[in-house]
Write a protein that binds this DNA or RNA. Structure first.
Lengths: 346, 346
DNA sequence: CTGAAAGCGCTTACAG
DNA sequence: CTGAAAGCGCTTACAG
């Protein structure tokens, strides 16, 4: 059963059937209802592939996931960001009549842009922890709109690229400021990998909050981490040996905060009575530690929602869209932070 | 740039270009290399949509996720099963040259089979906690192969349906047997929702292990749960009030085991010294509780891998494929279980 | 408001 | 081993 058959049965031309299918409007009501009836009776559904070929529009958006070579974990979806992000993207896309086609490739894989070359999609979203700028530019050159969550690379502005990013500096500033307002002046900071822009920005935010409150940062308050649980553990051991345990610790991500929490427990220090801890990300686990971890929540779902919506606006030719939006992490106050103890002040 | 252009530039017919593209073999080596060269020079890539339309084969498999109406959570990917499952499916499909098209609908949504009706996919995999049997049958009637992970519904055998399931009875039997071998005779069981087949099966496994070891089950050892953390907590309170705390607890899922663990901590009972606990599922969280939770791991990735591979075999016309495979959960021994204390035996 | 014709970019028999 | 023709099932101008 195809549009030709429907046309024949309804006594009209294929053009008219097309008009009815796509609700073009310029069809006589009687003709329209007749065609509709015939389609209904024959349980007819237009062939999406044929439609795509002739109309040059697929209503499919590619989700290009680039596997991280570093991580042995095969499971990108279990990632604190990718899972909720993909989830939101699919939901929102679906509500706007778009389907998602998933493609997984590795960094520097020459097949990354296959979906574009084959013309299987209308636009693409890149999900990756590595720098996708070159690939994105290539896709844009091919004539496509692209979307990306820019966690770390300061991607160039371009009229075809929709970008959502997080202001790490401001977010880290908020976290540090919060601790300072609780009365802490001796705040340990477990940094992220130093080569990453996000780590540098977070450090800047930490510094800014101190500067603003005119608190001098002791060099020994800084401990370089690599985003792993062990690093948080090591930081606490470092401060213990040094005999300079901070009254509050800010970790550049939740995993390290959890590591620090465990180390503190082991040393017999209570959280938050003896030491406050704040993390960054708002991983699910933070709700299951004891005490529950106070952290900075990165609004991944909002970012993903905004990304896909803006991208679709762009595809559909809307002109008044903001191509770039910057988000700030939000403080989620749980149980691991408290005002500095008065006894200490005495 | 299309196949016609390539044909012209290479001085051959479009048929020959098609033969080269698809590696049909019956092409003169010289002709082939010439065509290949022209394609290369022009950075030509066949249009996937056109190919699909003429060949009736898309190399796209639909992943039909059916949202659970019960759960308020928008995030199906964060689910302990769906995340790793989708992940594995995409990876394996990709390695075999298939793409995944994602579609999310709700239960009883009349659009669930759209991807089939539109002929956008070659086959479909259903991911759902509700009974998809009717929808699957409909898709089969439309001429498609389908795949499904059957956690609970005992889906009928059919030559077009690939089914992977878990033997809950055997898995629960293994868990219970393990506790019995540790010397426990007074084993509490927190059941799942009683209307679910998987809950009934798990109860049967629990009973079977007792029967085999000739241990009589005290009726008060059973506590009806609904798969939530609170239920595990309530179970422990129930046994406390009754004054009949089991020496070991088997919870029908990890969430309830965690609830029980928390309740035990609150009551001042030590795990595993006073009470052993074993869960079911192997959720990530089980590795972060203290003590770490012993549990029964459902091999989701293996199941998903087997599912997609078998489905593709079927699509490609292989005849010697096993359409149904049954898996058993595997014991993951961590820290929450121990032999019964000798003092208690005195 | 409606229709006839051409086209989207491939593949599939068929013939040689 | 190769080519000419027809076809997949739609949509897009164009003409009326």
């Amino acid at each position: 059963m195809n549009s030709f058959e429907i046309a024949r049965l309804a006594g009209v031309s294929r053009s008219t059937v097309t008009r009815v299918i796509n609700n073009y409007g310029n069809v006589h009501p009687k003709t329209k209802s007749k065609v509709l009836k015939v389609m209904e009776e024959n349980n007819y559904r237009p062939n999406a592939t044929a439609k795509k070929l002739s109309s040059k529009k697929s209503n499919v958006i590619g989700l290009l996931v680039i596997k991280d070579m570093d991580k042995s974990s095969p499971s990108f979806l279990v990632d604190a960001f990718f899972g909720p992000m993909v989830d939101t993207i699919i939901h929102t896309a679906s509500s706007r009549g778009y389907r998602i086609m998933l493609d997984i490739t590795e960094e520097n894989d020459k097949n990354t842009l296959n979906l574009f070359h084959e013309k299987s999609i209308d636009a693409g979203i890149f999900l990756s922890w590595s720098n996708m700028q070159p690939k994105i530019k290539e896709a844009v050159k091919l004539g496509y709109h692209c979307g990306v969550i820019d966690f770390d690379f300061a991607i160039d502005r371009d009229d075809s690229i929709v970008i959502m990013d997080v202001c790490d500096k401001k977010s880290a500033y908020k976290a540090t400021k919060y601790l300072i307002e609780l009365g802490h002046e001796h705040i340990g900071f477990i940094t992220g990998i130093k080569s990453k822009r996000c780590s540098i920005e977070r450090l800047k935010g930490y510094e800014l909050a101190h500067l603003e409150s005119e608190i001098v940062i002791n060099e020994s308050n800084l401990f370089e981490g690599y985003f792993n649980e062990e690093d948080g553990y090591a930081a606490v051991e470092y401060w213990t040996e040094l005999g300079k345990m901070p009254s509050a610790i800010f970790a550049a991500n939740d995993k390290m905060a959890i590591g620090a929490l465990n180390a503190l427990h082991k040393k017999g220090l209570r959280v938050p009575e003896d030491v406050s801890i704040i993390g960054y990300d708002d991983v699910i686990l933070t709700q299951y530690t004891s005490p529950k971890l106070t952290t900075m929540k990165v609004p991944v779902s909002e970012m993903a929602d905004s990304l896909i919506n803006t991208l679709i606006d762009k595809i559909e030719g809307r002109e008044d869209v903001r191509l770039r939006k910057t988000f700030t992490a939000r403080l989620v106050e749980r149980e691991s932070t408290a005002p500095i103890r008065k006894i200490e002040k005495k």
